[in-house]
Design a protein around this nucleic acid. Structure first.
Length: 905
RNA sequence: GGGCCGUUAGCUCAGCGGUAGAGCGUCCGCCUUACACGCGGUAGGUCGGGGGUUCGAAUCCCUCACGGCCCACCA
C-alpha cells in the first residue's frame, strides 16, 4: 500500500544509491547491438557548487539521454569538469587574499598543489550534485580537462596546429586584463556602456600656432601619443599635415599624419594617436611606421617611466592627474589647453572574469590562425551537417565565423595547460627581460623537455611560462573524452564519436560550441555533434540575471530538498521553451509537485483500488491478451490517445522542444487518463464482463505513461514502475532500461469522436447542474430528445454519462418534461427535471446567454459559407468543417429557442 | 553602427495561415470510497500600433513604438 501523498526524500535517496550500486548508467560499446546515443557534458568549471543554470542544462541532457535509452539507443553521457583557467585561479587568489597571501608568495609549484587539492574537493561536490539531480551519467568515464588523458590531447593538437602553420607566436596588440594579469582573447572581452567624458585638448603647433584640438575619452594615454591623425581629404587640416605639434604635459614634438581611418565628422576630426595603447592607433602606426610607439602604461596597470611625472600612478589616478594638469595649462596666448569637457557614453571593454576595464597592450603571445578552421565550420552549417536549435542562432553563428579574428591562446596565469614550447637557452637570448617582451624566440614544440637543441645541441631549455586559454582544452572535449588522439583499437572512440547532441547555453556559443566544431572538423573531418541544443538562461522571477551581488540566486539543492527533485526538474524543463530565457519563480514548482502527486495517486488507484493488491498473474496484464473487438469505447479511446501522445512527445523531443513534450505528457496523464478514463474505469471494474479489460488498460496505459515520463521525472517514475512492473509484464529491472511503448495500431478515429461527444454531453450536464446550483451529491433523472448518430452514441454509452454526470437515469423523451433545465450536446437536447429546485428566471437568463453565443457563432459560420471566394478557394475539408459547425450551431440554437418558448417569455 | 529575440487572459508563457490556449491566480459549488498537492463549474483577451498579402492573419510581408540580448577598433 502506498502512502496517500508522495514524499520524495526517501524515494530519491533510495534510487540514487541503488542506481549507483547497479552501475545502471554505465555504457558499453555495441552492447546488444544498440546504436550509440552520445552526449558529453559541458564540463562545469571547478569554481564551486553548481547553480540553477547547471541544473537546467543537465536536466535537459538527462531527459535526452534517458529518452533515447528508453527508445532503444545505447546511451552514453560522459561526465566531467573543466579546470576553468582564469575563473578558477581567481577563486583561489581570493582565498589566498583572505590569508593575506598572493600566489607569488607560494610560488608556482605550491600554488598548483593548492589548486589541485581545491579541484579534488570541487569535483566531488559537483558530481555529487549531478547525482542528486538524477543525472544518468556514466560515472566510470569521468574526465577532467586537465587530467593526463586530456593533456595528451591538448599537446597533440597544439603540435599538429603548430606544424600546420596555424599556431604562431608574435607581437600583437592584445586585450590585457591588468587585474588578472593576463592577455585575453577577443571573445573574452565584454562590452559595457559606461558613462564617461570626452575631453577636448589643444595640441599647439610647435611654431606657436593654434595647432589642433583632439577629443579623447582617455586623456592619460596622451603621454604616449606619437602623432595626431586627420583624414587626408579633410580640408580644415590640409595645411597642417606633416607639421609638428607640441604635446602638452610631455616635452615632446609629434607630427600630424593623414590617415583614412579618421572620421572627419566625429569630434574635431583630429585624433590623437597612441600606438601602444589603442588598437586603431596601433593600426595607424603600421601605416606610418615613422611615428613610432611609446608605452606609458605597464602590464600592472600603472603608469611606467615614460609617463614622466605621472609614473607610478594607476591608470585611473593618472587620468585625474592629467586632466587636472591640463586644466591649469595654458597655451602661448594664455588660452586653456583643456578646451572642453563633455559627458560621453561609450562602450568599454571589460574582462569577462573580473569586469575590470581592458587595457590594449602590445605583447608577445601565441596565436591561432582561425580563418581556415572557421571556413570549414561555416560550411558545416551551410550544408546542414550541423544544426543549431533553435535555428535563429545559426545566422549569428555564421556571422561570427565569417568575421573571425585570430585567437590569442596564451595566458599569463599558472592554472592551465602549460604551453608545450621550449626555448633553447643557447639559441635564444632570454636574459632577465620580462618574458612578455621577448621577441623572435625560436621554439621547440614538445610535451616533454627536449633532450637537446637540434640547432646547437644545447641541453638547457626554458619552458614557456604561459598556459593555454582554458577554452583550448574545452574545444577538444568531445574528442578527448574518448581517448583521442589514440584511435587504434580505441573502441570507445569508434563507437561513441561523433556525439549526437551538445546541450548548452547561448552565452558560450562562440567561446565553446564553434571551437569544438572547428576542432572536430579539422582533426576528424566531421562535425563532433550534428545538433546543438541552445537553451536560455535561468533568470530570477523579475527576469533579471541571477548574481551573488544582487542576492537573487536560487540554490538548486534547496529547491530539490523543499519540493522534490522531480518537481524541480519538471518545472525547469516545462519552462525551457526553445529560444527563451526562464524567469524562474519558486511557485512554478508547485504545479509539477502536484503533478508528481497525481502520478502517485493514479498508481495508488490502479494498485489498491483496481487491482485490490492482488498478486500479479504470471506475465501480468498484457494488452495482447485482450480481444480488441470486445473493448469498450473508453478503452479504445484511451489506447488511441495514449499512442498518439507517445508519438507527439517523440516528435517534440526529436525537434528538441522538450517543454512541449513534457506538456503533452502532462496533459494526457492528468486531463485524459485521470479525469476521464480513471473515472470511467470505476464503472467498468464493477462489471465482471469488462473488469479484466479495464484492469489491463489501466495498468498498461499508466505504466507506459510513466515510462515516457521517466526521462523528465526519473525518481517517482522509477518508484512507481517498480510497483507496477509485475502487473504490466515488464521485464526490465529499472525504468531506465525499459523499452518505450511500441505503436501497435491503436489509432481509432471512431472511438475518439464518440468519446469527444460523450465528454461534451457530460460537460454540458455538469455545467447546467453547477450553474443552477444543484448539489453535486444529488442524483438526477434526465431525458434526451433527438435521434441519429449522436443519440446512438449517447444510448450506447449511457452508463458512462450516468456515472460522470451523476445521473440516476437517462431516457428518451418525445417532448420536454415539465419543470426542467436544459442542456445541449451536439444536436441533442438533454432535459433535467428539477421540480422545486429550479429557478426559472435564472434558467431563462442562462439559456438566453447560451443562445446569444450560439447565434453569434451561427452568423459567423453563415457569413463564411456565404462568401463565394471562401467556398471556391478554401480547401474542401475546411469548408466541410464550417458546414458541420453551422449545422450544429443551428440545431442547438433551435433547441434553445424551443425551450425558451416553452418556458414563456 | 549591424544583427537577433520578445510584445497574446491579472501573472508566467504556449500556439506561429483556418472561428484564441495552458499553468498559476479570480469567482462559485463540492472532504463525490486514488488524490483538497484534489473534483466540477465560471469569469477574463479588438493576440503592442499602423499598413499590406490572402477566401481567411495572433500566425506571412512592410513599418512604427517599447523592452531585452548578441556582435562591433568610432577617438
Amino acid at each position: 500500500m502506498l502512502e496517500k501523498t508522495y514524499a520524495p526524500d526517501a524515494v530519491e535517496k533510495k534510487w540514487v544509491e541503488a542506481w549507483s550500486k547497479a552501475g545502471l548508467f554505465h555504457s558499453e560499446p555495441s552492447r546488444d547491438g544498440r546504436r550509440a546515443y552520445t552526449v558529453v557534458i559541458p564540463p562545469p568549471n571547478v569554481t564551486g557548487a553548481l547553480h540553477i543554470g547547471h541544473a537546467l542544462n543537465n536536466t535537459l541532457q538527462d531527459v535526452l539521454v534517458r529518452w533515447h535509452r528508453l527508445h532503444g539507443r545505447e546511451a552514453c553521457w560522459v561526465p566531467g569538469t573543466d579546470h576553468g583557467g582564469i575563473a578558477t585561479q581567481n577563486v583561489m587568489e581570493k582565498q589566498l587574499k583572505a590569508e593575506k597571501l598572493s600566489r607569488h608568495d607560494l610560488g608556482r609549484e605550491r600554488f598548483l598543489e593548492r589548486m589541485q587539492a581545491w579541484t579534488r574537493d570541487c569535483k566531488k561536490t559537483i558530481l555529487g550534485q549531478l547525482t542528486r539531480l538524477g543525472c544518468a551519467l556514466d560515472f566510470g568515464r569521468e574526465a577532467f580537462t586537465m587530467d593526463e588523458a586530456r593533456a595528451k590531447a591538448v599537446q597533440h593538437a597544439f603540435k599538429e596546429f603548430y606544424d600546420a602553420g596555424l599556431i604562431y607566436r608574435g607581437a600583437r596588440m592584445v586585450n590585457w586584463c591588468v587585474r588578472c594579469g593576463t592577455a585575453l582573447s577577443d571573445i573574452e572581452v565584454e562590452h559595457e556602456d559606461r558613462k564617461g567624458k570626452l575631453w577636448h585638448i589643444r595640441y599647439p603647433a610647435e611654431d606657436g600656432g593654434p595647432g589642433v584640438v583632439v577629443a579623447t575619452t582617455r586623456p592619460e594615454t596622451m603621454l604616449g601619443d606619437t602623432a595626431v591623425a586627420v583624414n587626408p581629404s579633410d580640408g580644415r587640416y590640409a595645411t597642417l599635415v606633416g607639421k609638428p605639434l607640441r604635446l602638452p604635459l610631455a616635452d615632446r614634438v609629434i607630427p600630424v599624419v593623414a590617415d583614412e581611418h579618421v572620421d572627419s565628422a566625429f569630434g574635431t576630426g583630429a585624433v590623437k594617436v597612441t600606438p601602444a595603447h589603442d588598437v586603431n592607433d596601433f593600426e595607424i602606426r603600421s601605416r606610418h611606421p615613422e611615428i613610432g610607439s611609446l608605452q606609458v602604461i605597464g602590464f600592472d596597470g600603472k603608469m611606467g617611466p615614460e609617463a614622466g611625472r605621472f609614473a607610478g600612478l594607476s591608470r585611473e589616478a593618472a587620468r585625474d592627474a592629467v586632466v587636472a594638469a591640463l586644466g591649469e595649462a595654458l597655451d602661448e596666448d594664455g588660452a586653456p589647453l583643456l578646451v572642453k569637457t563633455e559627458d560621453y557614453k561609450n562602450a568599454v571593454g571589460v574582462c569577462y572574469r573580473c569586469q575590470q576595464s581592458i587595457e590594449p597592450l602590445v605583447s608577445e603571445q601565441w596565436f591561432m590562425k582561425m580563418g581556415p578552421l572557421a571556413d570549414k565550420a561555416k560550411a558545416a552549417v551551410d550544408d546542414g551537417r550541423f544544426h543549431i536549435h533553435p535555428a535563429s542562432w545559426e545566422k549569428s553563428y555564421r556571422n561570427w565565423l565569417a568575421n573571425i579574428q585570430d585567437w590569442c591562446l596564451s595566458r599569463q596565469i599558472w592554472w592551465g595547460h602549460r604551453i608545450p614550447a621550449w626555448y633553447c637557452l643557447k639559441c635564444n637570448d632570454v636574459g632577465d627581460k620580462p618574458f612578455l617582451t621577448l621577441k623572435g624566440l625560436k621554439a621547440v614544440i614538445s610535451a616533454e623537455k627536449p633532450a637537446s637543441c637540434a640547432g646547437c645541441w644545447g641541453r638547457e631549455f626554458l619552458q614557456d611560462p604561459d598556459v593555454l586559454d582554458t577554452w583550448f582544452s574545452s574545444a577538444l572535449w568531445p574528442l578527448s573524452v574518448f581517448g583521442w588522439p589514440s584511435k587504434e583499437g580505441n573502441k570507445d572512440f569508434s563507437f561513441y564519436y561523433p556525439t549526437d547532441v551538445l546541450v548548452t547555453g547561448y552565452e558560450i556559443l562562440y567561446l565553446w560550441v564553434a571551437r569544438m566544431q572547428m576542432m572536430g572538423l579539422h582533426f576528424e573531418g566531421r562535425v563532433p555533434f550534428a545538433d546543438a541544443l541552445i537553451h536560455g538562461i535561468v533568470r530570477d522571477k523579475a527576469g533579471k540575471k541571477m548574481s551573488k551581488s544582487l542576492g537573487n540566486v536560487v540554490d538548486p539543492l534547496l529547491m530539490m530538498n523543499k519540493h522534490g527533485t522531480d518537481a524541480f526538474r519538471f518545472a525547469l524543463v516545462s519552462q525551457a521553451h526553445p529560444g527563451r530565457d526562464i524567469p524562474f519563480a519558486e511557485d512554478s514548482i508547485t504545479g509539477p509537485r502536484n503533478f508528481a502527486n497525481k502520478l502517485w495517486n493514479s498508481t495508488r488507484y490502479v494498485l489498491d483500488y483496481a487491482l485490490k493488491n492482488e498478486p500479479a498473474p504470471a506475465g501480468g496484464y498484457p494488452l495482447c491478451a485482450l480481444d480488441r473487438s470486445a473493448l469498450s469505447m473508453a478503452d479504445r479511446w484511451i489506447l488511441a490517445r495514449f499512442e498518439a501522445v507517445g508519438a507527439e512527445a517523440a516528435a517534440r523531443v526529436a525537434e528538441y522542444n522538450l517543454a512541449a513534450a513534457a506538456d503533452a505528457l502532462y496533459g494526457f496523464l492528468w486531463d485524459e487518463f485521470c479525469d476521464w478514463y480513471v473515472e470511467l474505469s470505476k464503472a467498468s471494474l464493477a462489471d465482471p464482463a469488462r473488469a479484466t479489460a479495464a484492469k489491463t488498460v489501466l495498468v498498461q496505459v499508466l505504466t507506459g505513461t510513466l515510462k515516457l515520463l521517466h526521462p523528465f521525472m526519473p525518481f517517482i517514475t522509477e518508484e512507481l514502475y517498480q510497483a507496477l512492473k509485475a502487473y504490466a509484464g515488464e521485464t526490465a529491472e529499472h525504468a531506465f532500461q525499459a523499452g518505450a511503448p511500441r505503436p501497435e495500431g491503436w489509432a481509432d478515429a471512431d472511438a475518439v469522436a464518440e468519446m469527444e461527444f460523450i465528454m461534451s454531453a457530460v460537460g454540458s450536464v455538469r455545467a447546467t447542474r453547477s450553474q443552477l446550483n444543484v448539489p453535486p451529491a444529488s442524483k438526477l433523472k434526465a431525458f434526451y430528445k433527438g435521434d441519429g448518430t449522436t443519440a446512438k452514441r449517447l444510448t450506447a454509452n449511457s452508463d458512462m454519462v450516468l456515472h460522470l454526470a451523476r445521473l440516476e437515469s437517462l431516457e428518451h423523451a418525445q417532448a420536454r418534461p415539465p419543470s426542467c433545465a436544459t442542456a445541449v450536446a451536439g444536436d441533442l437536447t438533454i432535459f433535467i427535471p428539477l421540480e422545486g429546485l429550479i429557478d426559472f428566471a435564472k434558467e431563462k437568463v442562462r439559456l438566453a446567454k447560451d443562445l446569444e453565443k450560439l447565434v453569434k457563432e451561427l452568423a459567423k459560420s453563415e457569413a463564411m459559407l456565404g462568401n463565394r471566394s471562401f467556398i471556391e478557394r478554401a480547401p474542401e475539408a475546411e469548408v466541410e468543417k464550417v458546414r458541420a459547425q453551422r449545422d450544429q450551431s443551428k440545431a442547438q440554437a433551435e433547441h434553445l429557442k424551443d425551450t425558451l418558448a416553452a418556458l414563456g417569455s
